[in-house]
Write a protein that binds this DNA or RNA. Structure first.
Length: 322
DNA sequence: AAGACGGGGAA
DNA sequence: TTCCCAGTCTT
């Protein structure tokens, strides 16, 4: 891992944000790419927001990107570019919760705060044989206290790195390599053959289906895209105006409910199954009425300048636009 | 306390 | 398919 052994809080911060709910293999190239464009927090703070989102495209959990920008600006403007050096102040930053605050505190400043992530929960629950559910308030508190007791306060960074490495490489979720584990002799789960029962799995919300009706206004060279805002999914990414969008209504280009879509594409997420209905409407020129700053009439050749969710990229690929 | 938020790799 | 990942924020 390219961030291993780094003490620069900026790089640690960036890597930890990227690795939230994201595998090392998946996040690594994003980390290197973003670091190449923005080698320090000053560069990131004055970055063009859309450009950073473009680099983030495909990683998921886009609020991380938004908070990353906000925190970079905050640190540069309020703290003269110096990363806060104590846990409580680090925890206050946007996008940084207990895990990331402990990671930065211990890796960058060797402060005695134990990280608690999926790896740590797994290792501790198996080793000690604790059947608490980790996604409840009491369960979280329990594992946080246990982790803090296990921490070697003199070597917090090393300890945190070690227990997460153990979880990632030996004490894996499925098929852990117990015979090679240095703790096998005193591990509850291994000795009692409870590996498959620990950790106790989280309750999982049902996957709900959702239909999105996208209207693609296009001529030979251009099409209309819309920046997504509000509280909905894919904030700050670009897609198309949806059926009943004000601009479509104002230009009398809204497809009727009876009209069949030209294309249907699906994308399954952790908690949603998105069904995208695409209605292609040929137009001769850019629609005029009610166009605001979120609606962009862009050349097809310049689509790569914008960040889109996977579903929309699939649409473009289907049409050979990308 | 529960739900929202992406995407991908492994079994 | 199902699980779940170096989690955090909002309601």
């Amino acid at each position: 891992m390219p961030w291993k052994g780094i003490r620069d809080p900026y790089r640690i911060w960036l890597s930890e944000i990227i690795l939230q709910q994201t595998r090392v293999d998946q996040g690594e190239k994003y980390y290197l790419n973003i670091l190449k464009h923005y080698p320090n927090i000053q560069a990131l703070a004055k970055a063009d927001e859309a450009a950073v989102f473009r680099l983030w495209q495909g990683l998921g959990y886009y609020s991380r990107c938004r908070n990353l920008l906000a925190t970079a600006k905050m640190i540069v403007e309020e703290f003269e570019g110096r990363f806060p050096e104590n846990y409580q102040d680090i925890l206050k930053l946007k996008g940084i919760g207990p895990y990331t605050a402990a990671a930065i505190s211990s890796f960058a400043f060797n402060l005695p705060y134990a990280v608690v992530d999926g790896n740590v929960i797994r290792v501790l629950s198996r080793y000690f044989g604790h059947f608490q559910e980790a996604d409840t308030t009491t369960g979280k508190r329990f594992f946080a206290e246990l982790a803090q007791e296990c921490l070697d306060p003199k070597h917090a960074g090393l300890y945190n790195q070690a227990i997460m490495d153990l979880g990632a490489t030996v004490c894996k979720p499925a098929l852990p390599n117990c015979p090679e584990c240095p703790f096998k002799k005193t591990c509850f789960a291994y000795q009692q053959q409870k590996i498959k029962e620990l950790p106790v799995p989280k309750k999982r919300a049902a996957v709900i289906e959702r239909d999105l009706h996208f209207v693609v206004l296009e001529n030979k060279s251009h099409l209309l895209i819309k920046r997504r805002s509000g509280r909905d999914i894919w904030q700050n990414l670009y897609a198309f105006p949806q059926r009943d969008d004000d601009v479509l209504m104002a230009n009398k280009l809204n497809p009727s409910k009876k009209q069949a879509p030209d294309l249907i594409l699906e994308q399954t997420l952790t908690h949603r199954k998105i069904k995208g209905h695409f209605y292609r409407i040929p137009v001769t020129r850019k629609p005029q009425a009610l166009i605001d700053s979120d609606h962009l009439w862009v050349p097809i050749s310049e689509l790569s300048h914008f960040a889109f969710p996977r579903l929309i990229i699939s649409f473009f690929q289907k049409l050979n636009y990308l």
